[in-house]
Amino acid sequence: MTRPGPAFWRRASQTGVALAMAGVPFANLFGLHGVSGNFLAMDVFGLPLGDPLAAVQVLASAGDITGRVALGAGLALALALVLGPVFCSYACPYGLLSELVHARSRRSGHLMGRLADTAVSAGFRVRAGAVLAGLILLAVFGLPPLLNLLSMPAYYSRLWQHVALGGVLWPVGGAVLMLAAEWRLGKRLWCGFACPQSVLLHLMARLNPWRLRLVHAPERCACAKGQSRCVAACSLGLDPRRPETLPLACNNCGDCRTACLRPGQALRFRLGRPDAQNAVLPGPEAGGLDKRPE
């Protein structure tokens, strides 16, 4: 029996989080309050966790935030600082749905090619621009945290809160339409071009030169010219062979690395500066390569 690979564990993590967030409001109904809240702010057995953008919005609009909110947002940012925006790839329920829709779309023939570098950076600029404009508006006019209205993971968890407590969550219809558009176009539009919640996570990761990052060793690449399993595996349409284009878009899901495990193990995750890492990728004698291409 083969051992489950990293893709299995990532999918298990996403599914587990999605199921847990669906179950929390119902557990609360039965008096179990160990976990409460949603992706905007939650309490996990006394430990606050929260969306950093929600916290920043309150800070911009109201001028201060509580220690609990700051701690919850700080923990999420600290995770991103070390591991990158892994919330997007290991926890976000919308990310899970979007990936499943993308896989389905691919099977239906709506093939997604690699995005141009300009499109990748444009996607980040759109998201960052929306965040910046939103925060300026909040600060100037003292508005409520309106960017929360664009939080897809929050809608997922709020949907279950509304089901449990009663109420209509009409924006879920918008999320369904977005998924339909992603299926039709074969592109993960929201995550790449619209999600404001991931902006702070990407920026935080970029701040840390010693973060977990994808490292590509071209000399190990065993794909034939014109063939690239890693690019085909990336649902965000990135080119993992060019790590310099990744920091503002890659969410460290590892699908490219999984696709590369057999052909040549040219892609690895490493903590530390990229320049120092290519030189220290372990060779076959150190267990770095378990199978060279045949």
Binding site: V24, P25, N28, H33, S36, G37, N38, L40, A41, M42, D43, G50, D51, A54, A55, Q57, V58, S61, A62, V69, G142, L143, P144, P145, N148, A154, R158, Q161, A164, L165
Partner: peptide, 16 residues
């Protein structure tokens, strides 16, 4: 007004 600035719609009040 101040309430709306600070409420992030986490729903914990409703759940408790």
């Amino acid at each position: 007004r101040e309430f709306l600035k600070r409420c992030i719609q986490c729903g914990q009040c409703g759940q408790i």
